[in-house]
């Protein structure tokens, strides 16, 4: 275990060093690509990059709201349509059909239909994040062990018990996986819609900075997005490992 972590850190250090060395040995210029030292410089800049932080806050708010809506809708619909087979059989083909459309192809359409506003941005983020969550939850709910369900019933369990003690625990691993995938998708949705609308947020920072000849500032935005993605996915994984300690046959990792 210790060796694994050491090797991991080594790999990362080599990666950052190689990146930085491009600058020291003059392979790439600091004007085009930002290097670790440049990025730190941006964060320390005086006066601080108020615009950048403002864009970060805007994007963070949109992302949080969109992700929350998608999570609630995805989990609720997934449980409903996964559990009630008939409803699932009726609506699932529709959802599969929508999911078959590469969502990026719908972004220009949504912007035309809904206008250049915050609502459009939210809708795009929700759409991007919804499907991984929904499909993970609904297939896991449909796969709930019928023996456990029967046992719960014969011991006099009511629907509340059934959902709380049988369905939710069996859905949980798939649900966290779905949520983890959804974070990445939500970020992509956020960037695409902000790039397209160009009305604030990190997406427009990327576009503006590039157009103003400051692509290294755009790279800072990319690194911020990437860090958010890693932190969120990582904490979800930790949370899952914590909740799942009771599961038999699962060593603490």
């Amino acid at each position: 275990m210790g060796r694994r972590i050491a090797l991991g850190f080594l790999g990362f250090a080599v990666f950052v060093a190689l990146w930085q060395m491009n600058l020291w040995f003059g392979i790439l210029s600091d004007r085009i690509a930002a290097f670790p030292s440049t990025l730190v410089g941006f964060l320390m800049a005086r006066p601080p990059l108020v615009e950048f932080y403002h864009a970060m806050l805007t994007s963070a708010g949109q992302l949080a709201a969109g992700f929350a809506i998608a999570a609630v809708a995805g989990i609720a619909l997934g449980l409903l349509l996964g559990w009630y087979r008939r409803a699932g059989a009726l609506f699932e083909p529709l959802l599969i059909a929508v999911n078959a459309v590469p969502l990026i192809a719908l972004v220009p359409l949504l912007v035309v239909l809904l206008g250049l506003g915050l609502a459009t941005e939210l809708v795009v983020i929700v759409l991007f994040a919804f499907f991984p969550i929904y499909f993970a939850v609904s297939s896991a709910a449909a796969a709930t062990d019928p023996q456990l369900v029967r046992m719960c019933r014969s011991f006099g369990g009511r629907d509340v018990h059934l959902v709380r003690d049988i369905v939710l625990p069996s859905v949980l691993p798939a649900m966290t996986t779905g949520l983890r995938l959804a974070i990445g998708r939500a970020l992509t949705g956020l960037v695409v819609v902000e790039l397209f609308m160009g009305r604030g947020g990190l997406g427009s920072v990327i576009l503006d900075a590039t157009n103003r000849g400051q692509p290294n500032l755009a790279l800072l935005a990319v690194v911020v997005l990437c860090t958010v993605n890693m932190l969120a996915a990582g904490s979800l994984q930790l949370l899952q490992a914590r909740i799942e300690t009771w599961r038999p046959g699962r060593q603490a990792s």
Binding site: L195, A218, L225, C226
Partner: peptide, 12 residues
């Protein structure tokens, strides 16, 4: 974890 789409403008 990099949102690849975000790199596009710089790549251009």
């Amino acid at each position: 974890a990099v949102p690849v789409v975000a790199i596009a403008p710089m790549a251009v």
